[in-house]
Computed example of a mutant assay.
Amino acid sequence: MDITTVDQELSVARDNGPLRTLVIPPCPELLTRLQAAMRHDDPDWDEVHAIAAADVAMSASLVRAANSPMYARRTTVHSVEQAMSLLGLRQVAALLTGFLSARALPVNHPALEDFWLNSSRRAVAMGYIARQLYDLPADLAHTFGLFCDVGLPLLLQSLPGYAGTLAEAGARRDRSFTATEQAAHRTDHAIVGALVARTWRLHPHLMVAIRLHHDVHAVEDSGIDPTVRSLVATCVVADHLTSTHAGFAPTIEWTTRKQGCLNHLHVQEDEITLWQDALETPFEALR
């Protein structure tokens, strides 16, 4: 499944059935500016700095991230300039994207308690894994971690009865999460998340990967772009790491997809244990 195929599928889904009335919030203006700045081979430092400094809370979150245990810095970062120098423009852009997205898509429902905390942990895990792999851009992986489940809160706000479907989908072991959604509503959060990525003009690889992240065959399908497959495989691993951190037993998705994902990423299972240990402190720092 390529970009064109996914785009056509999303257009059909948007024009028919339950998604005709779905309201997708517009992309925040600062995020639109950030995307424009980062599209250049040599992103504009001054423009990214202006965006980061445009909101006091966002500036504070960036400085706080730079001082987190993830970067093990001996001296304290006190300013946006110092944070940008430490993190680099692409990591800064990924962090700002997370902040702006959480503000634009607030989640106020007990069925998705700690949604953005869990998404942030997945994003941190995916960025970390990408840095170990070398052939997957860490900022792309981080952004995917933030957005892959963004369709959940939108469906919760838009479709009657979706809270019950959400609980059922998480509990069932005889079929996939998205199959349960489709059975109840003729759509699923992977499609809606991909629509958000398209509407917000995120990288096309993100749109496709979000659409396919619950597809059990995607990682092993050689007809799919390798970067998309790596994003999906890394997401499965990252979800396992965050779930284990939270004290949950391995999910059916992990047990059924683990080997295919590890094979695609050329990773051994003992490396997963090392990554779990390395991510414990960064996970806790997000609390």
Rank of each mutant, 00 (worst) to 15 (best):
L212A: 03
D41R: 13
M126W: 06
N108M: 12
P204S: 08
A130N: 06
L86M: 15
Q132N: 13
T165I: 03
L105T: 11
D225T: 07
L22C: 02
P43Q: 05
E168A: 13
N16D: 04
D225R: 05
D188M: 04
P282M: 04
A183Q: 11
L241F: 10
H245I: 03
P18E: 00
D221M: 01
Y134C: 09
A218N: 11
F248D: 15
F248R: 13
S176D: 06
L31W: 12
G193L: 04
A93I: 00
I252P: 00
S59I: 14
S158H: 15
M38L: 09
E271W: 12
Y71I: 06
R103F: 04
Q35M: 05
S230C: 13
C148H: 14
L159V: 04
S59T: 15
L62T: 04
L10F: 08
S230K: 14
S243P: 03
G193K: 05
I129M: 11
D114R: 12
A13L: 06
S222I: 10
H109M: 09
C261V: 12
Q268H: 14
M84E: 11
N108Y: 11
H217F: 10
P18K: 01
A94V: 03
V267C: 08
E271T: 15
E280Y: 12
H214R: 08
L140I: 10
G170D: 07
T187D: 03
D139T: 06
A278M: 06
F147D: 00
E269Q: 15
E253K: 12
V237Q: 03
V196W: 00
L19E: 02
L279S: 05
W45S: 05
G98H: 10
Q182S: 01
P282N: 05
V124N: 07
V12N: 03
L262G: 14
V92C: 09
V80G: 13
H185I: 04
E220A: 15
D188N: 15
T255V: 11
L146R: 09
P69Q: 04
G98T: 02
N118G: 13
H240N: 05
L152P: 00
L265A: 05
V80S: 13
R90V: 05
G145L: 02
L265G: 04
F144C: 11
A138G: 04
R74G: 11
A171R: 13
G151Y: 06
A37Y: 06
K258A: 10
T32M: 12
E9R: 00
L159K: 01
E269V: 14
P106G: 09
L96F: 07
Q157N: 14
I191V: 15
I224V: 13
I3K: 12
V192L: 07
L159N: 00
L19A: 00
T32C: 08
D174R: 08
R73W: 06
L274G: 03
A37W: 10
A72R: 15
R90M: 05
H142T: 10
T251L: 08
L202Y: 06
P106Q: 10
L133R: 12
V107F: 11
E47R: 13
Q182V: 03
